[in-house]
Amino acid sequence: MTKILLADDSAFMRKILTNILTKKGYTDLIEAVDGEETVAAYTREKPDLVLLDIVMKKKYGTEALKDIMQMDPNAKIIMVSAVGQEKVIEEAIQLGAKGFVVKPFKEEEVLSKVKEVLG
């Protein structure tokens, strides 16, 4: 079963993402509420996919992205953020993110990106 890590400091966002994913049968979900927790959860759980917010407490999502990629160069990470500038998106892709979804998002945007990255 596909295990997905939802990293977002907002419970509201995690809930929306959870609903979108469970409806499509992705029910093995874990959550992290800040950057440090994200890295720890990744190390511990080895999820198949991470949906990663950028602006979070303790460690920004971009920092967490760096850490995870260093640990596991094959990690599948999709950034989900309201920071939508080209510069940030480019940086994230360069750091190894497999995709970028800008908030506010539509259900289909998230799902198609998830499908695409999981392959």
Binding site: D9, S10, F12, M13, V55, K103, P104
Partner: peptide, 16 residues
């Protein structure tokens, strides 16, 4: 930084 984070999260939740 913390204020910016709050404003940021409020922004993204509100626009959703």
């Amino acid at each position: 930084k913390e204020m910016a984070r709050c404003a940021h999260t409020l922004k993204s939740n509100s626009s959703s």
